[in-house]
Amino acid sequence: MIREFAIVWANSGQLLNGLLNTAGLAVLGMILSVLLGSLLAVLLMARSRPVSLSAQAFVDLFRCVPFLLLAYLVYFGLPSLGLNFDNWTSGLVAIVFYNTAYMAEILRGVWRGLPRDGIEAATAFGFQGWRLFLRIILPQVFLIAAPMMGNQMIQIIKDTAFLSIIAVPELTHVASGIQSQYYVPFAAFLAAVLLYWMICSLVEAGVFAVERLARERR
């Protein structure tokens, strides 16, 4: 047993690399899906029926596709359309599409429940359009949505593990490689589990900090 962990320790550089890839994919994926999800939420809330319905169709589509299938589709399917991404980029694209849909749904839900009061005052004071959205609506939405967005971030971190099937060198892929090379499954996978747990704890600490900001304002 000790020997097994010693082997994993000897390969800690690889694991660290996998961890960085996982964190990189998750952070970049989160940032992009929050940005795109915010835009998509605007479309979901659009007064024009055709616009909001198309946005809703997009959201429903991506929420119904299993993430694994989406990753396959981006990596193996898109080249048929002439779109060739490397493994890492394919993984990121799949994460962003998938989570943009979820993020938009979360943000729209909170936005709908936002009290009309503040928005009305902003309108009366001359806010409109993007300025109203970015300065008055979105900050309130983010403060309320923070715990749900944190959950989604954790979901993203875990979903990156699926990307090992398209050979993205993320944490699960690396752990799997170490175990098959040295046949140390318990130690290799346990090490990966601990590292996942560490980054998820970091995310939770972040969510806790935002929740405190939100509490001060409630």
């Binding site: 009061d117 503040g118 009305e120 005052a121 004071f125 409109q128 008055i136 900050p139």
Partner: peptide, 23 residues
């Protein structure tokens, strides 16, 4: 929308329920 916003910004309004921005 923009012209209306500019015109509105010449008027100050106080609301029954205050309508302050909570964030």
């Amino acid at each position: 929308g923009m012209e209306l916003a500019r015109a509105r910004s010449r008027i100050g309004m106080v609301f029954q329920h205050f309508n302050l921005w909570p964030h």
